[in-house]
Every structure is written in C-alpha cells, then in structure tokens.
C-alpha cells in the first residue's frame, strides 16, 4: 500500500465525513433556532415539551441515537423499510446538534439585557427593528465562542457514523488494519481532522475578531 493509495482512500472517507458535517451544520442551525423559540415560549406546555425533548437528546449518547434512528422504524413496524444508513446518520446528527445549538441560542438571546429592548421601544422602534437592528448582532457576538466549540466537536463526532457502517474516514482507515494489517493509516486519518479543525479555528477567530469592535 503506497502512501498515495492510502491518501486517496482516506480522502474518499473524508468526503463522507465532510458531507455529514456540512449537512448537519446547515440544517441544525435553523432547526436549533426554532427549538430555542419553542423552549422560550410563554406558552408553558410548549416550552415544557421542548425542554424535555432537549433534555432527552442531550442526555443520551449520539451513538445510541444513530442506532435508534436506523434500526428503530424496522423494529416497530414490520413492513417499514426505514431510512438509508446515511440518512439515518444525518437525521440523528441534525436533531442532536439542533438540540445543543438551541441551548446556545437560548442562552444568547436570554442573556441580552431587557434594557436593550426597552431602549428600542421607547425610541418608537418596532419589534422587528429591535430584533434586527439591536438584538441580533449582540446575540451573534455572544454565541460565536460556544458555537465554535460545538462545531469543532461535530467534526470529531462524525466518526460515530461508522456504528451503522457509514464509511466515513475512520472506518476507511480501520479497514487497512483488517485487510492489510496496517495501523498507520488510522493515525494518518487523525491529521485530516487536525487540519480541518485548524481551518475552522482560524475561521472562528476571524469572526470573533470582526466582532471585537464592540462589547456586550
């Protein structure tokens, strides 16, 4: 096995890794926002229900959730085919990460002092104007650090997809052990994560930097 051949194989796995990462991220952010509104709702039953769901999702391992989404439907209903492996991973990841994100969003929104809303109100601004002109950027600034932590965790969590045999990079690397008795490709796969996380870290630092002209 040449270095190039291993690299090509790992790149193939990384493509899946990256897909899980980016689709989860893009879908979990809006879903998380919706969930955070649910948990902040003044309609008690809704906020109670949402918070309970978030508690369950955050309180159980993501690996277990992936398994449940993949095998669950088939076990409950005889004639249901269930989702494909990749779709199961995506569904579990999106729900799981949306739950985590929702708590970050809730913290960010609830952390804005009431005086900011009131200052806008007494200046005759509409709710919309207050949200978009005053609150939003302050929330973004507050959530960038916890979001970057969570997103970097997501990069590494993608490796859980192999529990239902989705061939992400770690799984590809592991196959070199069984087939060729080579362990170094597994270590080498770590470098992919390292570089990817490094790029993300730089990106988040840049965003933080861009928002550092004011304090909240």
């Amino acid at each position: 096995m040449t270095f190039t051949a291993v690299t090509l194989k790992l790149l193939e796995g990384f493509e899946t890794t990256f897909l899980i990462f980016i689709i989860t991220l893009v879908a979990a952010i809006p879903l998380g926002l919706i969930i955070s509104f649910g948990s902040m709702s003044r309609f008690r039953p809704l906020s109670w229900l949402t918070r309970t769901l978030v508690w369950i999702i955050r309180g159980t391992p993501l690996m277990l959730q992936v398994i449940i989404v993949f095998y669950g439907p088939g076990l409950i209903w005889d004639n249901v085919r269930g989702l494909t492996r990749m779709s199961s991973v995506l569904v579990a990841f999106i729900i799981n990460y949306a739950a985590y994100f929702s708590e970050i969003f809730r913290g960010g929104i609830e952390g804005i002092p009431r005086g900011q809303y009131e200052a806008g109100q007494v200046l005759g601004m509409t709710k919309r104007q207050i949200f978009f002109r005053i609150i939003l950027l302050q929330v973004i600034k507050r959530i960038v650090p916890p979001m970057s932590n969570e997103i970097i965790t997501l990069v590494k969590d993608t490796s859980l997809a192999r529990v239902i045999a989705v061939r992400e990079i770690i799984m590809e690397a592991e196959s070199f052990i069984s087939t060729y008795a080579l362990i170094w490709p597994l270590f080498y796969s770590g470098a992919f994560f390292l570089i990817f996380c490094g790029v993300l870290t730089i990106l988040f630092q840049f965003i933080e930097q861009r928002l550092s002209y004011f304090r909240v």
Partner: peptide, 28 residues
C-alpha cells in the same frame, strides 16, 4: 408605539446600543 414618541426616557443604566457609535446611537 406612536404615542411613546411624546415621551423620551433616560435609563439609570444608560442602555446604549453597544454595537453602534455615539453618533449612530443618536441617529438610529
């Protein structure tokens, strides 16, 4: 919202908008 404009309010804790300059706070 319309009637509020008859009154102005200065808060104990200022409540300036942190992401805007002094000018923009006044103009917004």
């Amino acid at each position: 919202r319309k009637n509020r404009l008859h009154f102005g309010l200065v808060f104990q804790s200022f409540n300036l908008f942190p992401q805007y300059t002094a000018m923009k706070n006044v103009m917004l």
